[in-house]
């Protein structure tokens, strides 16, 4: 099978989705990120790996956190970084995606970090660019958000190193969530034996079981004895029609409260990819509580993105 993410030697060339990546590549990214986590704690939080390279963040859809962490990751690798919010510039004037990309290539860009509301946008760009240019998907439509999936499993591995002995619950709007899809692929590829999804029927994609997960509609049953709770954001902006009665009703059934948290294992960790809707998906006392690792997720996101960028840049075939 021709995997557009891998070069002829089976090395990672683009990071477009976690689906289709072997465990060895995921593990290498996580192990490398472990080394970068130390760099972020030093006096000088920079290494010279990408000196002289140019990284372009092209965000056709807004995301402050993802863009900032990609920017910091590239800067801590000593790359030059350009960040474009295309929604507010050229596209508004009618330029196509590929024209935008070609213009940046003409400025000698070496790597693109792409976020787009359409699924497949990063694949489209990866097919278009020359072989020595790398593309990272920073979220495309409902499809994939691989670096978020990776930073989530990195966080889990840091707190619960025995991945082969874990019960993980993903709670909320799985239907619209590219994060959930990437998390599920990452968890199952790394050998987590039990992944549950907890959501109302209206917020689950059809045939979600085929991804290797157990489905729960009752949150109290689904949280029983889990080690990790991964909350998802309610994607109001992607919803059309009446999938939900009201945010209050949703919180009652699928919001994470202290009381529901106590159904999980006593040392279970609570995760959320952000931005949080407090009082809709998660109660503030839980989000800010001792079991929450929501801010460490953000910190590790930088190390994971440094690992991905440096592995990709290191796999450049000579021009």
């Amino acid at each position: 099978m021709n995997n557009p993410q891998l070069d002829s030697n089976g090395q990672l060339k683009h990071l477009l989705s976690i689906e289709g990546l072997p465990r060895s590549i995921l593990t290498r990214i996580l192990d490398t990120a472990e080394s970068f986590a130390g760099v972020s704690e030093r006096e000088v939080k920079k290494v010279p790996l990408l000196r002289g390279k140019t990284v372009c963040n092209i965000f056709f859809e807004n995301s402050t956190r993802t863009r900032t962490t990609f920017e910091l990751a590239a800067k801590r690798l000593s790359a030059d970084v350009v960040s474009l919010n295309v929604g507010t510039s050229s596209q508004a004037k009618g330029e196509t995606i590929l024209d935008t990309v070609d213009n940046l290539i003409a400025m000698h860009a070496d790597m693109f970090v792409v976020r787009h509301s359409q699924s497949g946008a990063a694949h489209f760009i990866a097919r278009h660019v020359d072989p020595q240019i790398h593309v990272i998907n920073a979220g495309d439509g409902r499809h994939s958000h691989p670096t978020q999936g990776l930073l989530d499993v990195f966080t889990i591995r840091r707190y619960k190193p025995d991945m082969h002995n874990l019960r993980v619950a993903i709670v909320g709007d799985v239907l619209h969530s590219r994060v959930a899809r990437s998390e599920i692929h990452a968890l199952t590829t790394l050998g987590v034996p039990e992944v549950r999804v907890i959501a109302p029927k209206t917020l689950l994609p059809p045939e979600v079981q085929k991804l290797g997960v157990q489905v729960y509609h009752d949150m109290r049953k689904g949280l029983k004895d889990v080690d990790v709770i991964m909350m998802l954001r309610l994607q109001n902006e992607r919803m059309t029609g009446a999938l939900l009665p009201s945010p209050q009703e949703y919180f009652k059934c699928y919001g994470l409260t202290q009381e529901k948290l106590e159904l999980a294992r006593p040392n279970a960790i609570v995760m959320h990819p952000g931005p949080m809707n407090r009082g809709v998906e998660i109660e503030s006392i839980v989000a800010d509580g001792p079991q929450s690792v929501i801010l460490p997720q953000v910190t590790y996101g930088i190390a994971v993105r440094m690992a991905v960028m440096s592995i990709l840049a290191g796999n450049t075939e000579p021009a």
Partner: peptide, 24 residues
């Protein structure tokens, strides 16, 4: 120290497949 992130041959041979965290 693991000097993988400081090697001068990164652009020729890429990132060392097994990096270890430096510990100071």
């Amino acid at each position: 120290l693991d000097i993988s992130f400081y090697r001068d041959d990164f652009s020729r041979i890429g990132l060392h497949p097994q990096t270890k965290p430096s510990n100071i």
